[in-house]
């Protein structure tokens, strides 16, 4: 592992910080994000609640007093009361209208490194002072940023990236069926896309520390707007329903022998979630690497490489519900425990 020192980019960094503040003040998205001061909390629970609704997410945060686990529960519960109209056309990450796109694999990439609105460059200290007013006027832009190809596209074209073989005619839907082991890749990806950010971060972190060997490079991280489209029921033509904020990440792991032809290729992982949530998407891509290539884990048994572990322990609503159910009256079962304890004590003591 190594890093390369770079310099420059002061103007871009200032513009990035400024744009981040502007985004949270409501000046960047306008009506696209009606509750800007809660933008990232709204994004987080829409992803964990698996329901994209900015209005209801805002309401859920209010109802839950700011408890995001509880707020995600509101969304998940509401989702279950709604009829499903159908399935939207697939989102292609290359079609995302990018607001931010960076790569740690290559310095020079098609479309460039675009910092976008980011808190990466903020000093995390409270300040009574007003923001310094730094801002790069729009006129200083070099090229418009819109749809950008993946920064890993060239490696793919050259056949340097492994394509794991997956046989699934259509994606598994964990909201309709309970998946059985061995879990289809699409079921695991769906579970992770709606997983709880903290849980996913913790499991991904195990793989980086003592229980695995995934230490990837971010190949392509992008935040932006993705179109939701379906078919007009009366004309039969494609129609756009709207746009949603999303985060997508491709990470590059180590190289491995490709079982398809025995050649050495790079392994990659993918993370995707509703809203702007880089930490979750990066954690998901690390877990994807660990799950798809368990050999990265020490003894192939690290927690992040266990599909059972990930499938059953990252859902915030489920784990919060199970944990909190211990508050419910357990008078009868506890009486039984006490009786067992009394007998054991009699024999033991």
């Amino acid at each position: 592992m190594s890093y390369v020192a770079v310099k420059g980019g002061i103007d871009a960094i200032r513009a990035s910080r400024s744009l981040y503040r502007k985004m949270l003040a409501g000046g960047f998205f306008g009506d696209e994000a009606p509750h800007p001061t809660q933008l990232l909390a709204i994004d987080r629970i829409m992803s964990e609640g698996a329901l994209y609704s900015q209005q209801l997410a805002r309401q859920a945060i209010d109802e839950a007093g700011g408890d995001l686990l509880e707020a995600a529960f509101y969304l998940r519960a509401h989702r279950s009361t709604c009829r499903r109209a159908g399935v939207a056309d697939p989102i292609e990450t290359g079609d995302i209208r990018c607001m931010r796109r960076i790569s740690a694999t290559f310095k020079d990439i098609v479309g460039g490194q675009v910092l976008g609105p980011s808190s990466d460059y903020l000093v995390k200290l409270f300040s009574r002072e007003q923001p310094d007013g730094e801002y790069c006027p729009p006129g200083s832009a070099q090229t418009p940023v819109q749809r950008l190809p993946s920064a890993l596209g060239e490696l793919r074209k050259q056949g340097m990236i492994m394509v794991p073989e997956v046989y699934e005619e259509s994606p598994f839907d964990i909201t309709r069926y309970s998946p059985q082991s061995p879990y289809p890749r699409s079921a695991l990806m769906q579970m992770m896309a709606r997983g709880e950010t903290g849980a996913m971060l913790a499991f991904a972190y195990t793989s980086m520390r003592g229980y695995g060997d995934v230490h990837p490079t971010i190949g392509d991280l992008r935040l932006g707007m993705a179109e939701v489209t379906c078919t007009h029921p009366f004309t039969g033509n494609r129609v756009r329903v709207g746009e949603i904020r999303v985060t997508a990440v491709e990470t590059v792991g180590a190289f491995k022998k490709d079982p398809a032809d025995g050649k050495l290729r790079l392994a990659t992982g993918f993370g995707f979630c509703f809203g702007f949530n880089e930490t979750k998407a990066i954690a998901m891509s690390i877990l994807d690497l660990a799950l798809t290539y368990p050999g990265y884990s020490i003894g192939e048994s690290g927690p992040a490489a266990s599909s059972e572990m990930i499938m059953h322990h990252i859902d915030g609503v489920e784990s919060m519900g199970f944990t909190n159910h211990f508050k419910l009256p357990h008078y009868v079962t506890f009486q039984a425990d006490l009786q067992t304890y009394a007998r054991a004590k009699k024999h033991h003591d």
Binding site: M46, S47, G49, A50, L51, Y52, S53, L56, H78, R79, C82, R83, R84, A85, G86, V87, A88, D89, P90, I91, E92, T93, S150, L152, V163, P164, E165, V166, E168, S170, P171, F172, D173, I174, T175, R185, S186, A187, M189, Q190, A193, R194, V228, C230, V241, G242, I244, V246, E250, T268, G269, F270, F272, C273, F274, D288, T292
Partner: peptide
């Protein structure tokens, strides 16, 4: 709701990421 599916660049398959209200 409309279920949102995503093209998976790793396997060229698809998966569901959640629903849009």
């Amino acid at each position: 709701t409309l279920m949102v599916q995503v093209n998976d660049p790793i396997t060229h398959g698809r998966f569901y990421s959640g629903e849009v209200l």
